Simulated scan of single mutants.
Amino acid sequence: MPPKVPILLLKTRSSPNDSYDDFFNAKNYIPSFIPVLEHRFNKTNLSQVRNLFVSGAFTQKSNANPTANTNEDIQWYGGMIFTSQRAVEGFANMIEQEGLPLDPKSTSSLILYTVGPATARSLTTLRDAHLPGATIYGAEAGTGENLAHMMLKHYNTIYPSSSSTSTPKPALLFLVGEQRRDIIPKTLMSDTLPLDERITVEEIVVYETGEMDSFEKDFQGSVQRYENDGHGEIWVVVFSPSGCEAMLRVLGLGPFASDKGDGNKDERKVFVATIGPTTRDYLRSKFAFEADVCAEKPSPEGVAEGIQSFMAK
């Protein structure tokens, strides 16, 4: 059997399991995770989320008059939206640290919208422990755009608007990071939608993201360790534009090629793969560097197929 190939994954290892770790360990690779970003939870805003629950903002009033128009009878929020693991982690940490003293029946109408299976699994654990009766929807969506269109149909079925009632449709609370796309709010509140189909989305930032100060040093140490061990081939998988400059600087590639040679593929031992076209194009436009591989599918299998095709050439 040929020697195992080190593959440096520039991401935080997902917990409790990571599909990249599982996949590459089962293949002829040595996966190693090097976190690029650190996430800092906004405790003040998370406490505000807790206060909304405690004040009954998510509670379906059993005696609500459907034609009433008083604050006492209007349900403020019908659900929450999660499109990242970090948002779920922040919400879970807040509950574990501050508690969420609720009547189990108070969340029976709560909808938790999510964009994929990994986030759905995390939400399921959280729901079972703290939000019994809440419904999780959207695990198969895959993207924020798909989820938004699914939500329009699903939420409007649960809360149909009618000219015969003055009760407004409850809003949705979207727990987000400091940097995020706005496709979901734009889609749900689009001016092109009939008024009775629009869904109000209120965003609250629960975490901030920044490049780790130690990333460049950690990455350099990992590369040197595998080079010193005599590995003839090392792969680096880049998952986002964050950390690209430090990565290229350590490897002496792109604008930093003069520091460590000319970056010729025939002479290099370290090769670069991107998880998709966004990061590939960023490397092209910002650093005039062409990644060796761009995965056709953003998955462990997609990365492995790209690497195998490249090495076969």
Rank of each mutant, 00 (worst) to 15 (best):
E140L: 12
E140D: 14
A141I: 08
A141E: 02
A141T: 08
A141S: 15
A141C: 12
G142P: 06
T143K: 15
E145F: 08
E145H: 09
N146I: 11
N146V: 09
L147E: 02
L147K: 04
L147I: 06
L147F: 05
A148V: 06
A148W: 03
A148Y: 04
H149R: 15
H149P: 05
H149Q: 15
M150K: 11
M150S: 12
M150H: 11
M150R: 13
M151G: 01
L152N: 06
L152A: 07
K153P: 02
H154I: 06
H154V: 06
H154P: 05
Y155I: 10
Y155S: 07
N156R: 10
N156K: 12
T157R: 14
T157D: 15
I158L: 15
Y159W: 12
Y159L: 05
Y159M: 03
P160V: 09
P160H: 09
S161Y: 03
S161R: 10
S162M: 09
S163E: 14
S163W: 11
S163I: 14
S163A: 15
S163Y: 08
S164T: 15
S164V: 09
S164C: 13
T165S: 15
T165Y: 09
T165W: 02
T165C: 07
T165E: 08
S166I: 11
S166A: 11
S166T: 12
K169L: 02
K169C: 02
K169I: 04
P170V: 01
A171M: 02
A171I: 05
A171V: 05
A171F: 07
A171D: 03
L172T: 04
L172K: 02
L172S: 03
L172F: 06
L173C: 04
L173F: 04
L173R: 01
F174G: 00
F174A: 00
F174P: 00
F174W: 00
F174K: 01
F174Q: 00
L175T: 00
L175I: 03
L175G: 01
V176R: 00
V176K: 00
G177A: 04
E178H: 08
E178T: 08
Q179W: 07
R180P: 04
R181Q: 10
R181S: 07
R181G: 05
D182R: 10
D182V: 05
D182H: 10
D182T: 10
I183S: 04
K186A: 05
K186T: 04
T187W: 04
L188P: 01
M189K: 09
M189D: 07
S190R: 11
S190A: 15
S190N: 10
S190T: 09
S190V: 07
T192K: 13
L193F: 12
L193G: 08
P194N: 14
P194T: 12
P194Y: 15
L195I: 13
D196K: 13
E197R: 14
E197T: 14
R198P: 03
R198H: 09
I199D: 01
I199N: 03
T200W: 00
T200N: 07
V201G: 01
E202Y: 10
E202A: 07
E202M: 08
E203I: 02
E203A: 12
